[in-house]
Design a protein around this nucleic acid. Structure first.
Lengths: 188, 188
DNA sequence: TTGCCAAAACAACACCGTGTTATTATACTG
DNA sequence: CAGTATAATAACACGGTGTTGTTTTGGCAA
C-alpha cells in the first residue's frame, strides 16, 4: 500500500513500452531499434521513456527478469524427481507455456533474443527439473559442468529451431527429444 | 594479375580495418562500435571505410567468410573416417589452430561473436569430419537434423566456455570431450 | 466533488555519429 | 618518371540522443 500507489499510469506506460519492444523485436534486432521509434509505437513521449529506463537494453532486461521470475514460480511446484516420466512431463509443461498465450517468450527465445537470457532460462528449468549434475559420484565434477553447458546450449539451439520452423513438433515430442539427447550426452 | 593489381594500399587498408574491428570486439559488441571510432583506431579516413564497406557488419562478414574459407582448406585434407581415433584427431587439430596464433578466431568464437557464423563454422567442421547424420538407416532423418542442431549448438557453448575460462583444457581433452558428448546424443 | 500532486506530455536545446560529395594529396604500377 | 587508382581532407544535411524547464493530465484522498 506504499509502493503500489499512483501505479495505474506508471504500470500502463511500462507495459505498453514492453509490448512495443517485443513487437519491434519481431522485425529487427534490439540494437537497431531506436528509442524514438519505440516511443512512437508505444505512443509514449520520449522523455517519459527516459524517466523509466536508460536504454532499450535495460527495458529488455526488465522483461527478461520478469520472465525468469514467472518461470521459476511456474515450475516451482513441479516434481524434482529424475525419473524419465517426471522429467518429460515437467519439460513438456514448460514447452506448453511457451507455445500458448505467452507471445513474448517466443521472441525472447528466438534468434533475435539475448543468448545470455536464453541460457539462464534453460539452466533454471533444468536445475529445477533435477538435470543438474550426474548421479554417478565417480564422475569428474568439472566434466559435469561441461556436460551441463553442452546440454543447455544444445537445448537453446533446438528450441530456436523449433520456434523458427513453426512449432511442428508437439510439446511432448520436444520434451521426449531433449530427454533422449540429454541422457545420451550425460557423462555417467 | 588483373584484380591483384594496385593492391598494396587496398590490402593494407582492409587489413588494418579488420584488425581494428577485432580489437574493438574484445571490448564491446559490434553493434556498439561506431564507424568513427573504428577508423580512428585503424588510422583510416572514414570516407575510405565507406569506399570499401557499407557498415561494421559487412566488414565482420568479410572476416567471417575468410575464416570459413581458411578452415575449409585447412581441414580439407583431414580424414573423413568416422572412427573414434580419426574424429578426435581431426577435431583436435582444429582446436589447436584455434589456440595458437590465430588471434581473431578467439574473438569470432566468443560471446561477442556472431552466433550464425559460429554455427556455420562448427557445421562445416563436423560435416567434413563425418559427423553428419546417423549411420543407422532406420533413424528418422528429421531427428538426425535435430541431433545435428543439438550437437552444433552444444559445441559452440562448450568452445565459448573453453575460451572464456582461459583454455585450461588441452586441445586433445576438448576433442575427446566433444566426441563423447556427440556420440552420446546420437539418435542411433 | 474538488484539490493536490505525481507522472506524462510538450518544446527546445546542444551534441554526435552518419553517409555522402567534391576536391586535393599521395603512393603504387608500369 | 608519368599516369592513375586510392586515400585524405573538408564540408554538408540529416536524424537520433539525452537532458532541461514548463505545462497538462489523470488518479487518489479528503
Amino acid at each position: 500500500m506504499k509502493e503500489a500507489k499512483q501505479s495505474r499510469k506508471v504500470k500502463y506506460t511500462q507495459t505498453t513500452l514492453k509490448d512495443s519492444l517485443i513487437e519491434l523485436m519481431k522485425e529487427k534486432s534490439i540494437s537497431k531499434i531506436t528509442i524514438k521509434e519505440l516511443c512512437e509505437r508505444a505512443d509514449v513521449n520520449r522523455t517519459t521513456f527516459y524517466a523509466h529506463y536508460a536504454d532499450q537494453f535495460q527495458l529488455l532486461k526488465s522483461i527478461e527478469d520478469e520472465t525468469i521470475s514467472w518461470v521459476k514460480e511456474t515450475i516451482a511446484g513441479f516434481s524434482g524427481k529424475t525419473s524419465k516420466a517426471d522429467f518429460i512431463k515437467n519439460i513438456e509443461r514448460v514447452f506448453e507455456y511457451i507455445i500458448e498465450n505467452r507471445n513474448h517468450i517466443r521472441v525472447l527465445m528466438s534468434e533475435q533474443g539475448d543468448i545470455g537470457f536464453q541460457r539462464d532460462l534453460l539452466a533454471v528449468i533444468y536445475e529445477q527439473c533435477g538435470m543438474w549434475l550426474s548421479n554417478d559420484v565417480n564422475t569428474d565434477p568439472a566434466k559435469s559442468v561441461l556436460y551441463f553447458i553442452f546440454l543447455v546450449n544444445g537445448s537453446v539451439g533446438l528450441i530456436q529451431h523449433w520456434l523458427k520452423t513453426g512449432l511442428k513438433e508437439t510439446a511432448a515430442e520436444m520434451s521426449e527429444l531433449i530427454y533422449s539427447m540429454s541422457r545420451g550426452s550425460r557423462p555417467d
